[in-house]
Amino acid sequence: MKSLFDQTEFAGLKLKNRFIRSATYDGVADEGGHVTEELFQIYENLAKGGVGTIITGLTAVTDREQLSPGQMGIYDDSFITEYKRLINVIHQHDTNIIVQLASLGSQNSPSETTGKVVWGPSAVEDSNYKVTPQEMTLEDISFLQTAFADAALRAQKAGFDGIQLHAAHGYLLSKFLTPYYNRRTDNYGGTIENRARMIFETYQAIREKVGPTYPILIKINSDDFMDDGMSFEECKYVCQKLTALGINAVEISGGSPSSRLNEGVVRGIKAPEQEEYFKRYAAEIGQEIHVPVIAVGGNREFTSITKLINELPIEYIALSRPLICESDLIKRWQDGDMKSAKCVSCNKCFRRGGTLCIFNRRKQSAPQ
């Protein structure tokens, strides 16, 4: 029987347990995307709290785009030294840390994109952010693929345990997969083979830079949950192709701010049957590919997620909001307190100025 506290390994990466902190927008880097003491403390607390592997918040691979407030960056070599300090502290707790590489595309506030490029596969307004990007030229595509590869090499030099490509949740790589937003008529549009070409080529550019053994993961939507979105069958094709190319693990998520009500990424949970809302997709992918599948989305209850890894072809469990609420949740479970995560999925933790659980904010503001 599998345990959530099994020591496992994939792609040469040793994991002390099956818990992964899923990439989470922390919102406390400085205006250039550099590490602040507040960001440093968030990650140190996660490592102290027992999670086996941390995936950072989405990290910018180029400064041609405007960073979202508080977003991390890795777009030039100045980041390498500061990330070395962060990584060394995380490793002292026998925890891995993987950097998530991303391009925002049109998912940014209109007031924050002045003077910077806003890219998209096509010039189609983002239905949530109301930003219309400029359609990427072939030169733009080549530049961005190189930027991802260069960022991955910096991550490797800094000592990150791997990188994760963010191809989910409506960010730029995800937009290429979505027919509604990708209306190109060249080799990057139309069929899923063409719409996924951006991701395949970006992966290959990274692999050429970092070599055959460095862990590369991807986060991808199971379904866009919107009209004219990417379907689950298309997601399966992309995962199968990436596995053939050499991807090392796949995290199955879903949706974006463009999704139908409560079919997006951070769904409300008011009953046990609403938990683990991407597990059936992760399980089906797990049956079809031979690399580890990571299940994210509404993982709250220890007994339930233990059954998940034992009854379905899922190797790892990713959590975000529960660890915003309790950075030491994994240690609490390991110490024998098996009560469900305290997180109530109110989604009030995601705010400008830094991601923080509303219950923890109340603690901070309480009279001393």
Rank of each mutant, 00 (worst) to 15 (best):
F176P: 03
V28R: 05
V291D: 08
L39E: 08
E193M: 10
G159F: 09
E9A: 07
Q107L: 11
E311F: 04
S259H: 01
K331N: 10
D161P: 09
K279A: 12
T243L: 07
F350W: 11
A366K: 13
G27M: 04
E301N: 14
G52R: 08
C343T: 13
L177R: 08
G246F: 01
H91R: 06
Q364T: 06
D227F: 12
A152H: 00
G52F: 09
R332L: 13
S22G: 14
L39K: 06
Q41E: 15
T306M: 08
F359N: 15
V296Q: 02
L172W: 01
D328A: 13
Y214T: 07
S142V: 07
L173W: 12
F232A: 01
L4I: 01
R280E: 14
A205G: 13
E125F: 04
V35F: 05
A23T: 02
K363N: 13
G211W: 13
A151D: 09
F160Y: 05
K16Y: 02
V250G: 00
G264L: 13
K363I: 12
A249M: 08
T114C: 03
S103R: 12
M72L: 15
L245M: 13
H290W: 08
G354Y: 00
P292D: 14
I314A: 05
R361D: 07
R351C: 09
T53Y: 04
H290S: 15
I358A: 09
E135D: 02
